[in-house]
Write a protein that binds this DNA or RNA. Structure first.
Lengths: 337, 337
DNA sequence: CTGAAAGCGCTTACAG
DNA sequence: CTGAAAGCGCTTACAG
């Protein structure tokens, strides 16, 4: 008996005094009616005793599948995508799948010209389906936070509903002139925000910015130095909202007294600066997408859920909140869900 | 020729008019001196034409390895660990390895009782080596941000040097009474901060807190309501520092006028709130660790690098900065490196 | 220089 | 109810 090499089903068979194929039958759970309970017992005991774990490479080769799913995201360092990953990985693990992350195509310095591993399916978030074309042999695919008009099933947020709540909230506060700090990335999720906002605020003025504090700062500064200065800035995500917040402060404007500011995502940043924002349930997005992919792999038609996105009202839009000179307030208010 | 099944080396062999073993030789790059240039040419052309990719499962089975590395981290949603992941994944990909993330043991609701996949090596960050015991068959391991006294090679930050710079900076500003908002997680990286701080500030007063805004807020409040109120709060990470910042504001204290505040990590949060902090190069940590693991897998002894951690001075410790009532300042100052 | 063969560890007909 | 055998697609001695 080899000492430092993992036990194989053959070793288990020898230990249990049965054939290797019987071991396989028993351990794969297909034995009832084909193997006696007594034999199954022996096999399980031997496997346990030896610490046997089936060799995944052998199984994959035999079965022609890998139980590996690739998650394609623009970046792993944005908390939003880290949460998507978490949700997807959890569901994957619960079903015996593993998840590899592929950051593409935006990650600076990414070394990939394409993923190396063989995969059974793919999840891709916040990008155009066409982006994935020619990437590899086609496998079942679910798109997240992406254009539902594509061919792949999607899991999305109710951006439109969120924008309705958000513009309604701003209207209630008496805001007429709205500025939009828009992400200058040409993907559906941001197009969707722009369309939903324009539908409700036809005279919205827009400035585009890459997603960073400084670019958000600059875009917001352009908006806030117009002669018809907006009284509210709707930002496409929390990072841009932080930039906008700083821009307002730099211009000597009070938030929310002179200008209201909102974001999207509800990451730690928004909580730290007490920004009103739309909470996008990223972890749930990842989980539901993985569930949909599992459906696809089992030949079922997955649902195409649209997840509710909750408006989280905090100080940056609450003129009624007790203002202090330094901007601190009591714990953040939340809308009832 | 099967239409929808991936081409195998046998298909390539048929197309090139050679044997399957020759295809393997050529494509694995071991052919020079064993196969003629002309034959190699033909094989490569055929492989290209058919879009051949070797089946990883077959290769893994034959070779007895997986080229898969497991990265064990407490959570993927903390930006610090997302950056570690990014650095490690990049190096892994450059060397044809893939990386799977295993969040353990802290992720709430994590479904794992252990990883499923077969792996060639393991990277584990910010935990005790003993935590990993019994988790699986032993494989080469590199520990990150962890006790260098363990048996596994480590990659670490120069926490001690950073603390020296930090306490020096605070001393220069005239701070005598220092409070420590300490993470109440019993791992080396935080023990290290405590020891380095206590060595330089023997009368430091400490409050412990779980890593969150609210717990940081509470711990800082306890420190700031002492009769001998600290004039500076050193926090174990940026999240705690945000909580401390809010606590100071809630007590009507000016930052940095009444109390200076510092963090660790230099995540987006710190930049957004303009907190002085120690920048821990997380991505580099991941990359260097992966490199070390590669050494280990190749039978070499990896170095045990200690990465410099830079003090980033921002408004929260800069009484000389132009203060506005709302806390905004000019772009963050940085120490020369 | 090239090919036929063995074998990695499984799963699944197939035979008894 | 149980086992012997084939075969998934590779890599690597081994033979020529």
């Amino acid at each position: 008996m080899p000492a430092d090499t993992p036990p194989t089903s053959k070793d288990v068979a020898a230990a249990a005094g049965v054939s290797q194929s019987t071991v396989s039958m028993v351990l794969s759970g297909k034995w009832p009616g084909r193997v006696s309970e007594r034999t199954a017992q022996k096999v399980r005991a031997a496997a346990e005793r030896l610490g046997y774990r089936p060799n995944p490479a052998a199984r994959n080769l035999r079965l022609g599948r890998t139980r590996t799913i690739m998650l394609v995201i623009p970046t792993i360092t944005a908390p939003f995508f880290a949460s998507v990953h978490l949700g997807a990985a959890r569901v994957a693990a619960e079903h015996g799948f593993s998840l590899v992350v592929f950051t593409w195509p935006l990650e600076p310095g990414g070394p990939f010209d394409g993923p190396q591993e063989a995969i059974d399916g793919m999840l891709a978030s916040s990008m155009a389906e066409a982006t994935l074309a020619g990437m590899r042999r086609p496998v079942p695919l679910v798109m997240l936070d992406s254009d539902p008009a594509g061919t792949a099933p999607t899991v999305n947020f109710d951006i439109d509903g969120a924008m309705r709540d958000l513009t309604g909230h701003l209207a209630d506060l008496g805001h007429h002139r709205i500025g939009h700090v828009a992400a200058d990335i040409d993907v559906w999720t941001f197009q969707c925000r722009a369309a939903a906002l324009a539908a409700r605020v036809p005279d919205v003025v827009t400035e585009r910015a890459a997603i960073s504090f400084t670019t958000g700062f600059e875009a917001a500064t352009r908006l806030l130095t117009r002669h018809d200065r907006p009284t509210a800035l709707v930002c496409d995500d929390d990072t841009l909202a932080v930039g906008a917040y700083k821009a307002a402060r730099a211009l000597g404007l009070d938030v929310p007294g002179d200008v209201a500011i909102t974001g999207f995502d509800d990451m730690l940043l928004a909580e730290a600066l007490e920004l009103t924002t739309v909470r996008l349930p990223a972890e749930q997005l990842g989980a539901r997408a993985m569930l949909g992919l599992l459906d696809l792999l089992n030949g079922r038609t997955p649902p195409r859920p649209v997840l509710p996105a909750e408006l989280v009202i905090r100080r940056s839009t609450s003129p009624s909140a007790p203002l202090t000179t330094d901007g601190h307030t009591e714990p953040a208010a939340r809308t009832a869900s």
